[in-house]
Design a protein around this nucleic acid. Structure first.
Length: 809
RNA sequence: GCCGAAGUGGCGGAAUAGGCAGACGCAAGGGACUUAAAAUCCCUCGGAGUAAAAUCCGUACCGGUUCGAGUCCGGUUUUCGGCACCA
């Protein structure tokens, strides 16, 4: 077969017949399969894209054959940093390069032969799309879920530009090598923390990989504890710390502020100011991952001020140290050297006292620091309380005095959405000297991204330099005002695209409520595990926020989730241009066809694991396809009898039905490699029958028909061609996926392994219905078993139905 | 560093809920057919051991639980993903 011709033939036919157009009249049977949309990078589709889209499409086809009306849209996550960097390097405008890349990728995606309905395509950089991204921002703003505050950015003092984390290499600018510092800018945030509790609680309802759920739980990072208020000695200043271990309050020997805490300036005395300022500069050069590294030396300086422990009036020094983060809790912690690992290391290094106030419950001697839960000692009225009791009792007491409160804290931070970049959706806000930050009226959307912009980095956001964009009239007072020069994080665009897909041409609203309520949630969402915490959490947040605003009526966007693994380069490294290990499928597809290529990807790798690329097995896939083709062609030439099944036929029927059963279950689980292995076994059994049985039963022909059907989702063009060869006029994808005849799977006899002391020694055959007693009896009557037992009476007999019997002697 | 996951033949990978490790395939070796090659078909294929068996060892490493561990528990180690401005 010339696979290229066949693929072209069927692609054309499917398009003409609109085989895969979503039929809205069957919406009650809908099944929404969604793959994470692509970033349109310059390169062509690589092996990784195919690994994502090919198997997902096979899954979609499988669902279609099960009778579902499958909705499988495709689109592009088109804004983002790479296009802008490319523009800076080459002068090619991000819009031009992006649209060109999209055109190329669309063409290539069509070649996969997937069941995408391109009528529903979504492109995030299209003003018709980002109009609604901006509208969603306005809704967030209206519902108090968007606000501005100061937040640090990576700043390259030499390029005078903000850098993405990715552009910072070992603390230096990737372009010029200058040391990157942190600098505060006023930026927009979404209040995702308002939903922390619900985001956490609903995780358990999701059919997602357990590891992903766990990662999100840790990311949200709920911890229950309390806030404790400290009075600063000789100053009219109070501040709070968050702690989960209020029971250690008598052991506080110092207090630490994050270097970025606004309190630092207020609390630093004149003689300490220089040292503190120097320290802050030093800290601004270190990133958070390094800062939190527990084996890094714990640096810090004294502010010169003292805090008063509210429980016992004791004065303790206030220090500044970078192991405390401004973004978590209150940006201040109490130092309990005896009962916290980091505090202990810090205290020892800085000569601070270590005072023990918790002893272990069982009284065993233990080393410092003792971080387990225990019993309070040297703690006045609280002595004898356990950690569990004390951590509440201490806060309760302080609460009565107005010096504390029980408090739940989350590690999750609000979502920073401002980007000081060009290639993104402009933030629809106007800044007026008189009226402040004013949202753009909805009727003025979209705020279109101007084309003629100088995006070379020189200290300003690119949009800020575009006067015709920046200068507008204030929508409230009409006086001259300026637009917000920043654009939205691309994660904002991708947090709602699954909603837009079902209604992409709607120019009255972001999506019709009726449509999303009928089509959502997504039944199967497929994408990389690297999105576990960010994209997947942001999308969940959007859904919940929109629900509360009354725009939709479900709680979770993605009912079921699967992560595909990564195909690495042949060297075992992640594919990248710079490593030069990117594998292009084009030549292989030209040689073997896209079906063989897709089959190989599904057969050769675990879908969830991925692995290093090698194309050694592709030929074998071709051989397999040849075998199937031969079977199909031969099957037309035989004449068949309709006799009752002999043992050979019974066995063939068994293989047929166990194949159907396994392939159904495996495909459901995205275990494509084993599904295809089962189809190969079925093919082998059929070949065997063809070669060995001359008077062929009608069963053979039926099996060949089923073989083509079960293969269809995995090799769509090939199967469609075979289906035609078998004399059918309609598409094989309008057929039902074969159903299991359970009766054919019932065997009269079973083979069991016989173990002596848990080692397999021999096998016995027992009637299928035999109970444990009977099995034991049959085994004991077996001459080989009797010999093995050497006349001994087993101490214990264990029967595992359908598997084995074990004699312990 | 922290969080999450993985480690099985020469290779890709299988092993419902703790029950016959290595399904399926690749590579390799041997054979059949052929003038020959290709294609196709058949056999062998974790290691040691043996004439063949028996037997022993074997799922990263060390230890544990169990009649029985690739699977569960404790520890070690290596690799991969994420760590909030790559998407």
């Amino acid at each position: 077969m010339n696979m290229l011709e066949i693929e072209a033939k069927w692609n054309k036919k499917w398009e003409e017949d609109e085989t895969y157009k979503f039929d809205t009249s069957r919406i009650d049977k809908k099944y929404y399969v969604l793959e994470m949309f692509s970033y349109p990078s310059g390169a062509k589709l690589h092996v990784g894209h195919w690994f994502n889209y090919g198997p997902s499409d096979s899954f979609a086809r499988f669902k279609r054959m099960q009778g579902y009306e499958v909705f499988q849209p495709m689109g592009f996550d088109a804004f983002g940093l790479p296009a802008e960097n490319y523009a800076i390097k080459t002068g090619i405008h991000p819009k031009d390069s992006t649209l060109k890349n999209i055109a190329t990728m669309e063409k290539q995606l069509k070649n996969i032969g997937a069941t995408y309905d391109w009528d529903y395509e979504v492109v995030t950089c299209d003003p018709k799309y980002y109009k609604w991204t901006q509208w969603l921002f306005l809704q967030m703003y209206k519902h108090n879920l968007a606000y501005r505050k100061e937040a640090p950015v990576n700043w390259c003092p030499s390029c005078k530009t903000v850098l993405a984390n990715e552009q910072v290499v070992d603390g230096c600018c990737e372009r010029c090598g200058a040391t990157v510092v942190r600098k505060n800018l006023t930026q927009w945030f979404f209040k995702i923390t308002d939903y922390a509790e619900e985001l956490l609680n609903d995780i358990d309802k999701l059919d997602w990989p357990e590891k992903t759920k766990l990662m999100q739980k840790h990311w949200i990072g709920k911890s229950t504890g309390g806030e404790i208020e400290f009075q600063v000695k000789d100053k009219n200043i109070k501040f709070r710390v968050f702690t989960t271990r209020a029971d250690t309050i008598f052991g506080i020997t110092y207090v630490v502020l994050a270097p970025e805490s606004p309190l630092v300036d207020e609390l630093t005395t004149e003689e300490n100011r220089q040292a503190v300022e120097d320290y802050k500069v030093q800290c601004s050069k270190i990133n958070e991952i390094e800062r939190l590294s527990s084996n890094r030396e714990k640096t810090g300086v004294f502010t010169g001020s003292y805090a008063i422990n509210p429980i016992n009036g004791r004065e303790v020094p206030i220090l500044v140290a970078d192991y405390v983060l401004a973004s978590y809790g209150t940006g201040a912690v109490m130092g309990v050297a005896a009962h916290d690992e980091r505090d202990y290391v810090f205290a020892v290094k800085h000569g601070l006292p270590v005072e023990r106030v918790i002893k272990s419950k069982d009284g065993s001697p233990d080393d410092l620091p003792f971080t387990d839960y225990g019993v309070m000692v040297n703690s006045g009225e609280f002595d004898g309380m356990t950690t569990e009791e004390g951590r509440v009792a201490v806060i309760k007491k302080l609460e009565k005095e107005g010096k504390g409160a029980l408090k739940t804290n989350y590690r999750l931070r609000d979502w920073l959405i401002s980007r000081q970049r060009y290639w993104g959706a402009p933030i629809p806000v106007i800044h007026c000297e008189h009226c402040g930050a004013v949202p753009v009226p909805e009727e003025d959307l979209p705020v279109e991204l101007p084309y003629n912009v100088n995006f070379t980095p020189d200290g300003e956001s690119p949009l800020k330099k575009c006067e015709e964009f920046m200068n507008v009239k204030c929508p409230v007072c009409g006086r001259p005002a300026r637009r917000d020069p920043d654009t939205l994080d691309t994660f904002v665009c991708s947090s709602w695209y699954y909603l837009r897909y079902v209604d992409p041409k709607n120019d009255k609203e972001a999506f019709s409520r009726d449509k999303v309520d009928k089509m959502l949630p997504v039944d199967k969402y497929i994408g990389g595990a690297e999105h576990a915490c960010m994209h997947l959490l942001y999308a969940r947040f959007f859904t919940k926020a929109l629900r509360d605003m009354g725009y939709l009526d479900f709680d979770e966007p993605f009912k079921s989730l699967v992560h595909q693994g990564t195909i690495l380069g042949p060297d075992g490294q992640k594919m990248s241009k710079s490593r030069g290990n990117v594998v292009s499928p084009d030549a292989l597809i030209e040689k073997y066809g896209s079906d063989a290529f897709r089959l190989y990807l599904m057969f050769g790798f675990s879908y969830v694991e991925g692995g290093p690329w090698n194309d050694k097995g592709l030929e074998s896939i071709q051989r397999f396809m040849d075998r199937v083709e031969r079977l199909v062609c031969h099957s037309r030439t035989f004449s068949y009898n309709e006799k009752e099944y002999s043992a050979v036929e019974k066995n063939l029927d068994f293989v047929r039905n166990s194949t159907i059963k396994s392939v159904t279950a495996d495909t459901e689980n995205f275990s494509f490699n084993t599904a295809i292995a089962r189809i190969m076994e079925f093919t082998n059994a059929l070949t065997d029958y063809e070669n060995k049985v001359s008077d062929k039963n009608r069963l053979f022909k039926d099996c060949v028909t089923d073989l083509v059907k079960v293969l269809a989702p995995f090799a769509p063009h090939f199967a469609e061609e075979l289906w035609e060869i078998l004399g059918n006029k309609s598409s094989v994808f309008n057929e039902d996926f074969p159903k299991v005849n359970e009766k054919a799977l019932v065997k009269d006899e079973l083979e069991l392994a016989v173990q002596i002391n848990s080692r397999v020694k021999t096998k016995i055959v027992v009637p299928a219905g035999a109970d444990n007693k009977e099995i034991e009896k049959i085994a004991l009557a077996d001459p080989t078993v009797r010999k093995l037992l050497e006349g001994q009476t087993p101490k214990k007999v264990i029967v595992i139905p359908h598997r084995l019997i074990n004699f312990v002697i």
